[in-house]
Amino acid sequence: MQFPLVHVSWALADNAGRPACDAFFRDIFGARTVYEMLITPETESYGFDREESLMLIGDTMVIPIAPAGGGAREGSPLGDMLRRSAAPMRWIGLALKVSDLAEADAWFAARGFKRHYDPGMETHYFLVPRGQALGVRLEIVRQDMPNDPRRAPHWRPAADHPLGIEGLQAVGVSTPSETEARALFAERLEWPELGTRELPEGCCTAFAMGDTALEAIAGSPGSAIAEHAAQVKGICHLVFKVRDAAAAAAWLESRGLPLIGEVSTRFAIDPGAAHGRLIWLTQETPPGYPAVGSQVGTISPPQGD
């Protein structure tokens, strides 16, 4: 099946910090807000329990989510989940697009995955809980995201930001071993393997996940990535391709942001200065990786709703 990436999400413990987080990604990464879900008297009466901004970095939607309204109270299922998930280097998960939800449900069921449906959303999406996918919660989505410009046939991401982001190259996931990564991504999910390579943080085995690559990183015992796989689990980084790495690094340094990594290969803002997110930038494309560019607009949901 085709699985274009719809969005990547992470949690904030307190909604009071969400505006600063959003502003950072708008300013530093050129993120453009396409839709906001906010608490108003009307939405709170509907049981709204969170606030979030749907933002595009290049052609990739990222969503920092914070508990609000009923979600701000202890005991709220979603609010408690967000508070548990709101830690540096911990992400909620990935949303992947399909055209037929029933067909996708059968596909995942045949591969032994348990699926969860939120009440009232049975025709819109289902979840594969994070415990089944090395800590990555998969949201299998049929509907379009509100105001998503990527659905327009001739839409292209803005190209005027100093970072010069061309598109998402990969999503990184920590794994206890290459064997476990292959068992999940290559065998159960049937995502083609793109190759292996050594990175400073560990051995990277890449798989084709729809319109981008998924990098499973296995580290040596005691390494930071091994600790992530054991204690945090799930997504550990994003990688964006940029037009000119040296120019992007120089611009970030001019903003006083501390960088890690190597500009000649890939580098990032230190996560401590980036709201706990590790987002690599690179000018290189590893062999076998798909060309950057969202394919969300190529998937049409079934008619009849």
Rank of each mutant, 00 (worst) to 15 (best):
R115E: 04
R115L: 04
R115A: 11
H116R: 10
H116K: 08
Y117F: 13
Y117V: 03
D118N: 14
D118P: 07
P119D: 10
P119R: 08
G120I: 06
G120T: 08
G120P: 05
M121A: 10
M121I: 07
T123N: 12
T123S: 14
H124M: 08
Y125H: 13
Y125K: 05
F126M: 09
F126W: 08
F126D: 01
F126I: 11
F126E: 04
L127R: 10
L127S: 07
L127W: 07
L127H: 12
L127C: 06
V128F: 03
V128R: 00
V128Y: 01
V128T: 08
R130Y: 12
R130I: 03
G131S: 05
Q132S: 06
Q132T: 06
Q132R: 04
L134Q: 04
L134I: 06
G135H: 00
V136R: 03
V136T: 09
R137N: 12
R137A: 11
R137T: 13
E139F: 10
E139V: 07
I140V: 13
I140A: 03
I140H: 02
R142A: 08
R142G: 01
D144S: 11
P146V: 09
N147H: 15
N147T: 07
D148W: 03
R150F: 08
R151E: 04
R151D: 05
A152E: 14
P153Y: 09
P153R: 10
H154F: 15
W155T: 02
R156C: 06
P157Y: 01
D160G: 07
D160A: 13
D160H: 12
H161Q: 13
H161A: 02
P162V: 05
L163P: 07
L163T: 07
I165Y: 00
L168K: 00
Q169P: 01
Q169G: 07
A170C: 13
A170H: 06
G172K: 00
V173M: 06
V173I: 11
S174I: 01
S174V: 02
S174P: 03
T175A: 13
P176C: 03
P176W: 04
S177G: 08
S177M: 11
S177V: 09
E178G: 15
E178Q: 15
T179H: 12
T179D: 14
E180Y: 07
A181V: 03
A181K: 01
A181Y: 02
A181Q: 02
R182G: 00
R182M: 06
A183Q: 04
L184Y: 09
A186W: 10
A186D: 11
E187Q: 13
E187I: 11
R188E: 04
R188Q: 12
L189E: 05
E190P: 02
W191H: 03
P192Q: 06
P192E: 10
E193K: 04
E193I: 05
E193L: 04
T196Q: 15
T196E: 14
T196L: 10
R197M: 12
E198T: 07
L199A: 14
L199Q: 12
L199P: 02
L199F: 13
P200K: 07
P200F: 15
E201K: 15
G202F: 06
C203S: 11
C203G: 15
C203F: 15
C203D: 14
C204G: 00
C204E: 04
C204M: 14
C204Y: 01
T205Y: 05
A206P: 09
A208E: 14
M209R: 04
M209D: 03
G210R: 00
G210W: 02
T212P: 01
T212D: 02
A213H: 01
A213W: 00
